[in-house]
């Protein structure tokens, strides 16, 4: 079966949803502001005759209609990184600040890690972890190419991640961009739809719960945890949050994303979830002509110490 069939009940315009899922996505690059401004990237593209289009909700993103995001000088210089549009959302929700301690729990191949380091002005510490050593080499390559100097790379199972190799024992913020069944990437890689199985959904949901629980535990009181996937499956999204809300001291918070989203669902396949999962955000391909995505923002419970409440500080800012 085509797994997209099962999500038709969740979307308002089934035809538009299915049509969008069938259209290929353009190549997109993100500006690495550690190395260059978006204006410099535009100048370099202009000089070299590289076609590009702006993305109206993010000034650092450029669509490259002719593809080949690596075949130009801005890429060679580490000014740009190929990254699907929706893939920039979790780091925007995380909103890391210079000087903070940030954990990227499932980091390879490093698109979000490098975006996090960029948002931190390369100051503070971003710990990029992945359990797959082969994929970590891609992460290290990307981090070096983009000139990231504030990252530590670890190779652990994120579900029982140990902070022992680190100079601190809790994070200000954590990102769980979880391994998932990836139907949201079908516009780039239609094979994900053929490979999809419900067994895999259930297996990976168990991993997702374990990683997210550990991320909440490893983040300080008042800190922020962002959970994201590129699947539409509620089993891997709202159900994972429902589980962790019950088992760990944390709450879902409202947040803004710069494109059109739908709220998380409270019912699926006979299950009901905590009402607060409506604060999570679903990104359907037909809304903004992007890939599919899911993103949630959690505040870790307990009293903040003198370093303050990361969520409140953003609201005040």
């Amino acid at each position: 079966m085509n797994p997209l069939d099962r999500y038709e009940s969740l979307v308002d315009d089934v035809d538009a949803f299915r049509a969008a899922c069938d259209r290929p996505l353009p190549s997109v690059v993100r500006t690495n502001r550690i190395a260059a401004t978006p204006a410099r990237v535009r100048e370099a593209f202009d000089e070299a005759g590289v076609a590009y289009e702006p993305v109206d909700w993010h000034d650092g993103l450029f669509r490259l209609p002719d593809g080949n995001p690596g075949g130009n000088w801005p890429y060679v210089h580490g000014w740009t990184h190929g990254q699907e549009e929706v893939s920039v959302l979790p780091a925007l929700a995380l909103d890391p600040q210079p000087g903070e301690r940030v954990w990227d729990a499932c980091a390879a191949p490093g698109s979000k890690t490098t975006q996090i380091a960029d948002a931190m002005d390369d100051e503070g510490t971003v710990v990029a972890n992945d359990n797959n050593l082969g994929r970590l080499s891609a992460l290290r390559h990307n981090a070096e190419r983009l000139g990231i100097t504030n990252s530590i790379v670890t190779n652990q199972d994120a579900r029982n991640f140990s902070t022992k190799p680190l100079a601190f024992d809790e994070f200000d913020r954590a990102l769980v961009d979880a391994p998932c069944s990836c139907e949201g990437t079908c516009r780039k890689n239609p094979d994900v739809l053929d490979q999809w199985t419900l067994d895999h959904v259930h297996a990976v949901a168990g991993i997702q719960k374990g990683v997210l629980a550990r991320a909440v535990q490893a983040t300080r009181p008042g800190g922020v945890v962002v959970y994201s996937t590129c699947t539409f499956a509620p089993e891997e999204n709202e159900a994972v949050l429902d589980h962790v809300l019950a088992s760990e001291d944390c709450e879902l918070v409202e947040f803004d994303l710069p494109l059109e989203t739908d709220p998380g669902v409270t019912e699926w396949d006979g299950e009901t979830y905590d009402e607060s999962v409506t604060r999570t955000k679903r990104v359907y391909p037909h809304r903004n002509d992007t890939g599919g995505f899911f993103c949630a923002k959690l505040r870790v419970g307990g009293e903040s110490d003198e370093s303050g409440d990361a969520v409140d500080r953003e609201v005040a800012a």
């Binding site: 301690r101 503070g124 510490t125 971003v126 970590l136 290290r140 100097t149 504030n150 990252s151 530590i152 790379v153 670890t154 190779n155 190799p165 680190l166 100079a167 601190f168």
Partner: peptide, 10 residues
């Protein structure tokens, strides 16, 4: 950033 000395990481 902040790191222990020595650091047994990748």
């Amino acid at each position: 950033g902040e790191a222990t000395d020595p650091s047994e990481v990748e």
